[in-house]
Structure formats: structure tokens, C-alpha cells
Amino acid sequence: MFSDPFIAFAIVCAAISAVLLLWYLVARPKLTRATKIVLLFAVGLLPLGTAANGNVAGYHATKTRVFCSSCHVMTPFGDDSSNPGSTSLAARHGRNLMFGDENCYACHADYGMFGTITTKIGGMRHVYEYAFNFHQLSLEEALPRIHIRQPFPNATCMRCHSTENPGWLRIGDHKSLLDRVRTGEVSCASEGCHGPAHPFAQVAHIKAEQAAAKPVAP
């Protein structure tokens, strides 16, 4: 924790500020110029240092796989993508050092100038969904109901897989579907191509559909 300079600085600022505030609350000095300067540091400048550095540290924390899978319904997604023996698309990307511990964010973050902001707003929607719809469900109940809100965009895959590489173009399916892949008409993560990225979730969806389709006994 303290190896992160942002966190270390934020905690040092918070500690100094807390000491000054406790001194003020205990000693109750008169409001002289010196007291005002001490309080300017204790209430203003030092907490500002804590908040600014804490925000950066918090922002980094929200990108990690541990953070994403800390809600119980996301646990299997995190476990699968960090499983070295798994062959799912998510796990194979998770083993890539370019994705590493932030593989959820690397694939699910929006691209573009305001991508970070729209991703964080989308994250607040996840919080809402979890608090009001999924929090009380068991994992077995939740898994069939968890779905991606919009089709996974090929543009996300194409940040790394440019579709220009000769090795990529040598593959027949890539070559024949080139235009449709680039426009997003055919999804990279579709079944039969490279997906689904989280196969166990797909299995849960299929099981739920089959159970729903079963005729109810009279």
C-alpha cells in the first residue's frame, strides 16, 4: 500500500491534518492569526493533498480486477480471468501483461476522448444495478440475469488487433469477413469466432433459457 507514492503522500497529509485538528479541538485556542494559519493547513491545504492523491489512488483502484470482482456476482468473472488454466477469451487476455490486473477495465472501458468519464458513469450504473437488483440474489440466481448492456464493440478489440497485420489477414475467416468485422457487423466475440469471452456465463444463460422453455406440469 505505502509503495504507491500517491497513497503514502495522501496518508501523511491526512495524519498531519488530523494531529492539527485534534490539537485545535483539545486546546481550543483563541482565533488569532496563528490559529487561522494552522487551521488553513488542517482544514484546507492538507486535506486537499489527501483528496487529490486519494482520488488518483482511488481511480487506479477502480481499474483493478480485484475491485471489479469484489461484488459477489462478479466473483466468477474475476476468478475465471485470473485462472492460469482457463482458456476463455477473458483469461487469455488476463495473462497478457499489457492487460494484467486491469484486464476487466482494459476490455470494458469505452474508447475515445471522454471514454474514461463515460466508463465511470457506466460504472455508477453497475453500482445501481447491484444495489437494487443483484445484491440480494445468490450467484446461481444472478448469473443467468447478468448480461452486457450493449454488444461488445469490435473497436475495442481493434485497439490492439488492427486487422492490418499480414498474419491476421492470412486467416481465411478474417479475410472473408474483413469489412464486416471492421464495421462491427460481425462481432469478434461472437460464438463460433472468438467468444463468448466468459463462457460459464453463457452456459448459465442457456440453462436458464432451457428451464424457462420446459413445459410446466399441470
Partner: peptide
């Protein structure tokens, strides 16, 4: 003000 700051700092440190 001092008490609010202490609460705010406590929440920030907890998050870290």
C-alpha cells in the same frame, strides 16, 4: 468544521 474534516479524512483514508 474540524469534526467534518476529521470524518472526511477518515473516509478518504479508509478508501485507500
Amino acid at each position: 468544521s474540524a469534526v467534518l474534516t476529521l470524518f472526511g479524512l477518515a473516509l478518504m483514508v479508509w478508501s485507500m
